[in-house]
Amino acid sequence: MTVSIREARDSDFFPWLSLYEGYASERGVELTEQRALQLWTWLSDPHHPETSLIALDEDGDVTGLVHFHTFPRPLLGETGVFIDAIHAREDTVAQELFRAVRDTAAAQGAAVIRWTQADGETLPRVLAEAGGAAASSAYVELQTTPQPA
């Protein structure tokens, strides 16, 4: 299968939504219309740090997505890239998406690519095959109450 990778466009919303709903469902998260539209707004804003790439098959159908953003690593004086979501209909498509993120990270001078996995979830094969390994066994999270804008 020939796959092309590019940034998501406005016309990709419904095929992207279908894939992202699958991603959310696999993680046991209810993807509300409000959440989906908020994320799409971020992805459509060239000034927002969240970026989306999509994979297209030979027919131009969207077959995969990846969302990621850069983050500072102040102690080391460098940056990294964090993958927020990667989802594809086939492993080969996920591999191509990951390569695209890796190429983007390298072009931006990022020193590391990070992602998280849900409790009990094994490292996605595409990331394990790329040399990914667990860097820590846990993270701490504190819920806050956002203030209205």
Rank of each mutant, 00 (worst) to 15 (best):
L43H: 06
V81S: 02
L37T: 07
H48P: 01
E96R: 14
D103S: 15
T32N: 06
V66Q: 03
R89E: 02
A100N: 03
L43C: 10
R35K: 14
L31Y: 04
R102F: 04
G60S: 09
E33Q: 14
R35I: 09
L53D: 02
T70C: 06
I83S: 03
T51Q: 14
A100C: 06
S52L: 12
T32L: 08
L37I: 11
L65R: 15
G64C: 05
V93L: 08
P74V: 11
P74W: 00
V62N: 09
L39A: 15
A110I: 03
T79K: 11
R73A: 06
G109H: 07
D59Q: 11
V81Q: 10
L43T: 03
F98K: 01
I83W: 01
H47M: 12
A55R: 07
E96S: 04
T41V: 04
T41H: 10
H48G: 06
S52P: 01
V101Q: 06
L53Q: 06
W42R: 09
H69L: 12
Q95L: 04
F82R: 07
T92F: 01
T41D: 12
P46N: 12
E50C: 00
D57K: 13
Q38K: 12
A110D: 09
L31T: 10
L97G: 00
A106C: 11
I86E: 09
H47S: 10
A105C: 12
D84W: 08
L75D: 08
D45L: 06
L37S: 04
E96N: 08
Q95T: 11
G28D: 15
A94D: 01
I83H: 02
A106E: 08
A88D: 00
Q38N: 15
E96Y: 04
T32H: 11
V81H: 01
G64V: 00
T70L: 03
E30A: 13
G109E: 01
V101R: 02
E33H: 03
H67Y: 08
E30T: 12
W40C: 10
T32G: 07
A88N: 00
T32R: 14
Q34C: 01
L53G: 00
A88H: 00
L43P: 01
H67E: 15
I54C: 04
A94I: 04
L65I: 15
L39R: 07
S52T: 12
R27Q: 14
L37N: 10
R99T: 13
P46M: 13
H47C: 07
W40R: 03
A106Y: 00
V81T: 14
L31V: 11
I54T: 00
R73T: 13
L37Y: 09
A100W: 02
S44I: 07
R99M: 05
L76T: 13
I83Y: 01
